[in-house]
Design a protein around this nucleic acid. Structure first.
Length: 230
DNA sequence: GACCAGGCACATC
DNA sequence: GATGTGCATGGT
């Protein structure tokens, strides 16, 4: 279903995605993502937020900060069960403790005592390396590259897929890499834009494009010829 | 009590 | 290759 007035009137996806961004940005304002005071905090947040509400992640991150654990060497030395207790509010704490340990181990294998040095590589190399770490999938890897490293790698999440699917921008069976390629070839290759674009889509997803839609007031409502599908 | 939240790995078919 | 399941807390 490709049912937007804008889409049919526009000769390419760039115009459509740009118009969508303007509408979302006007509604929500700049989102100033990613929440986090350091690259390491952003990396850990990306792992801890997997399938979890962000407010729970904040509690886990606060525990790590209060315990003085926000450093690569400390996390590397820490037993997984101790780490699990600290990140318990984020849910899946045993699984996520192992995933954090795997990530930290990779950083140290690369000869780095901090994530800044680990992240200072071309995005493609970094992505391949991250994807080889057990517990880091495409979304987590792209979140780390975009938000912690500040390099252009568009993040696709459940909200993005749902919004794009409902608005007819992607097919019902399009997978992560297909959707990612659609955004990356259609938008100017600027990390700052991709950063806030994804944040805007999450804002739409949180407020409107839920499993049970609530379209009233959605900034993307104008992209439908009859009514919003969010 | 049910549903949902900024996934991923692994087993099975 | 596609689909199903386990992982777990906390807010609504």
């Amino acid at each position: 279903m490709r049912n937007t007035v804008y889409w049919s009137a526009m000769d390419d996806a760039t115009e459509l995605l740009t118009a969508m961004y303007r509408a979302m940005r006007a509604h929500f304002g700049h989102q100033h993502w990613w929440p986090g005071d350091s690259p390491l905090e952003i990396c850990l947040g990306a792992i801890l937020t997997q399938n979890t509400n962000w407010t729970n992640v904040e509690k886990a991150v606060a525990n790590l900060l209060a315990a003085g654990c926000m450093s690569v060497p400390v996390l590397d030395e820490m037993p997984a069960d101790v780490l699990a207790k600290l990140i318990r509010p984020a849910g899946y704490f045993n699984v996520k403790a192992r995933r954090v340990k795997h990530f930290i181990a990779r950083v140290r294998q690369a000869g780095c005592d901090g994530v800044e040095a680990f992240l200072a590589r071309p995005a493609a190399d970094l992505r391949a390396d991250l994807l080889s770490v057990n517990g880091i999938g495409p979304e987590t890897a792209d979140s780390i590259i975009l938000y912690a490293a500040g390099k252009p790698s568009f993040v696709i999440d459940a909200y993005t897929c749902r919004i794009c699917r409902r608005h007819g921008l992607i097919g019902p069976r399009d997978g992560y890499e297909t959707v990612k390629a659609f955004f990356e070839r259609s938008l100017p290759r600027r990390a700052a834009l991709w950063n806030d674009y994804h944040a805007q889509l999450v804002a739409v997803g949180k407020h409107f494009c839920r499993p049970r839609p609530h379209c009233e007031g959605c900034p993307l409502e104008c992209f439908e010829h009859d009514e919003c599908v969010c």
